Amino acid sequence: MIGEMDVDSVVDYFRGKSILITGSTGFLGKVLVEKILRVQPDVKKIFLLIRASNVESAKFRIQNEVIGREIFQVLKEEHGVGFHNFVEEKICPLVGDIMHEDFGLDTAKLREVSKDIDIIVNVAATTKFSERYDVAFNVNVLGVKHVCAFTKKCIKLKMLLHVSTGVIGEQEGLIAEKAFFMGETLRVGTHLDIESELNLIKETRRELRDAGSTEKDERKVMEKLGLKRARNFGWPNTYVFTKAMGEMMMGLLRGDFPVVIIRPSIITSTLKEPLPGWMEGIRCWNSKLNS
């Protein structure tokens, strides 16, 4: 249990700091944004990396997919008529995507934000268990590579926090938390080569295009390939397999600053704050139902 003094120190840590959050339009991301704004209104700035065509489109997504949700009702009541000014002051949309180098930011914007960011929280992920292998790999593996590269350009960065749900697979019993080393798997006698997996994806897509496959056929093949590769190395589905590879990538490319990997076994609804029982989306963890 976290003591009251520990909670206070965590809350105080965010005072006056600028935070970059990826994946803020997802369930966990918006819970984090709301929590920070509610418990530490003296946070300097929260940059939200948003996939959009321009800043206005990004602001529209934030309004509709983040602060416009019911979970922000308590904050709205606390600030009253000043809520929108408060949000405008604290939240800064950043048009970009972790699937691109430097998140796709132009040189001027990259230089501007890299001077200000103290903390990066990487929540972005594709969480569909049987996602296309190429899509899951791009977001959950290469996305981590791009995040790590970006951190090294943030001159005042103090911490990188990475969320990695369920990467230990379907093991039973008491399992000690330890980092995944590059190439490590959950199946004895196998070795994982991330570069080879990327080449397999590229080659499979090339073969499909040469054969004139439809988009529907390509999607089915890539979904089956992801599940096949995951189970070959001991993971139950493409999601947790690619998240595990993302952890390996982070271990290889991390900088000299503190890196924290949070591994919730599964994420469900809020317990009591700011609203009891609030959640978005439903996931079934039974791998047999996602095969």
Results as ranks from 00 to 15, higher is better:
Gly104Tyr: 02
Gly82Pro: 00
Gly255Arg: 12
Pro93Gln: 02
Phe14Leu: 15
Gly23Asp: 02
Ile282Asn: 08
Gly26Ala: 07
Arg61Ser: 11
Pro274Gln: 08
Phe180Asn: 07
Ile62Glu: 00
Lys44Met: 02
Val74Ala: 11
Thr185Asp: 08
Glu65Lys: 10
Phe47Ile: 03
Ser287Pro: 12
Val123Pro: 00
Gly212Cys: 10
Ser114Pro: 04
Gly82Thr: 05
Gly169Asn: 10
Phe27Ser: 13
Ile71Asn: 04
Thr214Trp: 05
Asp217Val: 11
Val113Gly: 03
Lys272Gly: 14
Asp118Trp: 05
Tyr239Pro: 04
Asp42Tyr: 09
Thr107Arg: 07
Leu94Gln: 00
Met245Pro: 01
His84Phe: 12
Val31Arg: 03
Pro236Trp: 09
Met222Gln: 11
Asp42Cys: 02
Val10Gly: 09
Lys115Asn: 11
Met182Gly: 00
Gly68Lys: 02
Pro258Leu: 06
Tyr133Gln: 13
Val141Glu: 07
Val11Gly: 07
Cys148Met: 15
Lys224Gly: 02
Thr107Tyr: 03
Asn199Gly: 00
Gly169Thr: 12
Ser196Arg: 13
Arg132Trp: 12
Ala149Gln: 15
Gly189Cys: 10
Asp102Glu: 09
His191Asp: 10
Lys152Thr: 06
Pro264Gln: 07
Asn232Met: 15
Pro236Thr: 11
Arg51Thr: 03
Leu110Ile: 01
Lys288Cys: 01
Lys115Glu: 14
Lys178Cys: 12
